[in-house]
Protein backbone atom coordinates (compact mmCIF):
# COMPACT_ATOMS: atom_id res chain seq x y z
CA UNK A 1 0.00 0.00 0.00
CA UNK A 2 0.93 3.66 -0.24
CA UNK A 3 1.71 6.07 2.59
CA UNK A 4 -1.21 8.22 1.43
CA UNK A 5 -3.59 5.40 2.42
CA UNK A 6 -2.39 5.28 6.04
CA UNK A 7 -4.70 6.65 8.75
CA UNK A 8 -3.63 8.89 11.65
CA UNK A 9 -2.16 6.87 14.53
CA UNK A 10 -1.24 3.93 12.30
CA UNK A 11 2.33 2.75 11.89
CA UNK A 12 3.97 1.17 8.87
CA UNK A 13 7.36 0.23 7.46
CA UNK A 14 8.84 1.87 4.38
CA UNK A 15 9.31 -0.57 1.51
CA UNK A 16 10.12 1.33 -1.65
CA UNK A 17 9.58 4.52 -3.66
CA UNK A 18 7.74 4.96 -6.95
CA UNK A 19 9.13 8.40 -7.83
CA UNK A 20 12.86 8.53 -8.58
CA UNK A 21 13.22 12.30 -8.11
CA UNK A 22 11.48 12.35 -4.77
CA UNK A 23 13.04 9.17 -3.45
CA UNK A 24 16.51 10.67 -2.96
CA UNK A 25 15.05 13.54 -0.96
CA UNK A 26 13.11 11.11 1.24
CA UNK A 27 16.15 8.88 1.69
CA UNK A 28 18.29 11.82 2.74
CA UNK A 29 15.69 12.86 5.27
CA UNK A 30 16.03 9.44 6.88
CA UNK A 31 13.11 7.66 5.21
CA UNK A 32 15.10 4.57 4.25
CA UNK A 33 13.51 1.20 3.44
CA UNK A 34 12.91 -0.77 6.63
CA UNK A 35 12.34 2.35 8.71
CA UNK A 36 9.20 2.45 10.82
CA UNK A 37 6.95 5.47 10.40
CA UNK A 38 3.85 6.72 12.22
CA UNK A 39 1.21 8.91 10.62
CA UNK A 40 0.99 11.68 13.21
CA UNK A 41 -1.64 13.94 11.74
CA UNK A 42 -3.37 15.22 8.64
CA UNK A 43 -3.67 18.99 8.08
CA UNK A 44 -7.16 20.46 8.64
CA UNK A 45 -7.84 20.73 4.91
CA UNK A 46 -6.88 17.09 4.28
CA UNK A 47 -3.41 17.86 2.94
CA UNK A 48 -0.43 17.87 3.74
CA UNK A 49 0.29 15.14 6.29
CA UNK A 50 2.84 14.78 9.09
CA UNK A 51 4.70 11.57 9.80
CA UNK A 52 7.06 10.58 12.59
CA UNK A 53 10.24 9.07 11.25
CA UNK A 54 13.63 8.53 12.82
CA UNK A 55 12.63 10.51 15.91
CA UNK A 56 11.34 13.67 14.28
CA UNK A 57 8.25 15.00 12.49
CA UNK A 58 8.28 15.34 8.73
CA UNK A 59 5.50 16.90 6.72
CA UNK A 60 4.77 16.16 3.08
CA UNK A 61 1.97 16.55 0.60
CA UNK A 62 -0.47 13.76 -0.19
CA UNK A 63 0.83 13.67 -3.76
CA UNK A 64 4.32 13.06 -2.37
CA UNK A 65 3.05 10.47 0.10
CA UNK A 66 1.65 8.51 -2.85
CA UNK A 67 5.19 7.79 -3.97
CA UNK A 68 6.14 6.00 -0.74
CA UNK A 69 5.27 2.33 -0.73
CA UNK A 70 4.74 0.86 2.72
CA UNK A 71 3.61 -2.29 4.42
CA UNK A 72 1.37 -1.68 7.38
CA UNK A 73 2.23 -2.96 10.82
CA UNK A 74 -0.62 -4.27 12.92
CA UNK A 75 -0.10 -3.74 16.59
CA UNK A 76 -2.98 -4.06 18.98
Amino acid sequence: MKLSELKPGQTAVIKDFSDDDLSLRFLEMGCVPGEEILLERIAPLGDPIAIRVSGYSLCLRQSEAESIIISSVDRN
Binding site: D21, L22, R25, F26, M29, P48, A50, Y56, S57, L58, C59, L60, R61, E64
Partner: peptide, 11 residues
Protein backbone atom coordinates in the same frame (compact mmCIF):
# COMPACT_ATOMS: atom_id res chain seq x y z
CA UNK B 1 12.92 23.24 -9.18
CA UNK B 2 10.03 20.95 -8.47
CA UNK B 3 7.78 22.24 -5.71
CA UNK B 4 8.52 20.08 -2.69
CA UNK B 5 6.78 20.21 0.60
CA UNK B 6 9.01 17.68 2.33
CA UNK B 7 9.86 19.70 5.38
CA UNK B 8 10.70 19.12 9.00
CA UNK B 9 8.18 20.14 11.64
CA UNK B 10 10.61 21.21 14.38
CA UNK B 11 9.77 20.79 18.06
Amino acid sequence: ERSFFIMELPV
